[in-house]
Computed example of a mutant assay.
Amino acid sequence: MSNFFGIDHVQLAAPKGSEEKARLFFGEILGMKEIPKPSNLAKRGGVWFQCGHHQLHIGIQEHFQAAKKAHPAFLVKSLSELKEVLLKHQISIKEDEPLEGANRFYVEDPFGNRIEFLERRD
């Protein structure tokens, strides 16, 4: 029997001092709600967001290196609307191989991390 029943959060790394860029991209452009970090962790820097029932943590990494292969895939309700918003902000969209039952594309966050957006087809 498995004790696992879900994912609490996903963490992406970012370089020191990049919190405002994270707030702009994940908060203002993507519309995720910023949530407070616990006070004992706030001193590390970074910023946290609510994403549906899960959280996205942007953590500061001293010797930062962008994640190019491992990546989060966010489920969205309207991929076409999101694409319009991203293009309006001059964010490049990367199409990929079709995935049965879903439409999807990738972007890079302001730090070069790969992010997938996915909309399920009925």
Rank of each mutant, 00 (worst) to 15 (best):
G27K: 09
K83Y: 05
A102Y: 09
L86K: 09
I60A: 04
E84N: 13
E84T: 13
A67M: 11
I60T: 12
E119N: 11
E28D: 15
G46K: 00
I60K: 02
P36S: 08
E116H: 09
L41D: 08
P15Y: 07
A42N: 00
P110I: 01
E20R: 06
M32H: 07
D8K: 01
H63G: 03
E28K: 13
Q11A: 15
S80Y: 11
D96I: 12
L12W: 03
L30H: 05
N103P: 08
R121A: 06
P15I: 09
E20H: 04
G17Q: 03
I7L: 14
H9V: 10
D109A: 02
G6C: 12
G17F: 07
E19Y: 00
F105G: 09
F117H: 03
V10I: 15
C51I: 11
G31E: 10
P36W: 09
K94Y: 14
A22E: 01
F111I: 00
R44V: 01
I7Q: 08
K16S: 03
A67I: 04
A67V: 02
E100V: 11
K77E: 15
E95L: 14
E108W: 03
V76P: 06
F4N: 10
A22T: 02
V47T: 05
F4G: 10
E62G: 15
N103I: 10
I115L: 06
S39K: 10
A102I: 07
D96E: 14
P72S: 05
L118N: 10
P38N: 01
G45V: 03
K77V: 11
K88S: 13
E95K: 13
F4D: 07
S2K: 12
L75N: 12
F105A: 11
E119F: 08
E19H: 02
H53G: 05
H71E: 07
G27W: 04
A42P: 00
G17I: 04
P36H: 09
W48D: 11
P72I: 02
V85L: 11
L79F: 03
P36K: 11
I58D: 00
G52T: 09
H89M: 08
E20T: 09
S80A: 15
A67D: 13
Q55G: 13
R104L: 14
I58R: 00
L30R: 04
I115D: 02
R120W: 14
N3Q: 12
F25S: 10
H71P: 12
K37I: 08
K83W: 05
Q65D: 13
H63P: 00
G101L: 06
H53C: 05
A73G: 14
A67E: 14
A70L: 12
W48A: 11
F49P: 00
S2N: 14
S39H: 02
A66W: 03
V47R: 01
N40I: 14
P36N: 07
L30C: 07
L24D: 09
P98L: 13
E95P: 11
L87N: 10
L24G: 02
K94P: 04
I93K: 00
N113K: 04
P36Q: 07
P110W: 01
I29A: 06
E108K: 01
F105S: 11
H71M: 05
N3L: 15
L12V: 04
A13K: 05
I60L: 06
L41V: 12
K37F: 07
E34T: 13
K16H: 02
R114K: 15
E97Y: 14
D109F: 03
L86W: 06
I60D: 00
G59Y: 05
M1L: 12
D8A: 06
G101R: 09
F64V: 12
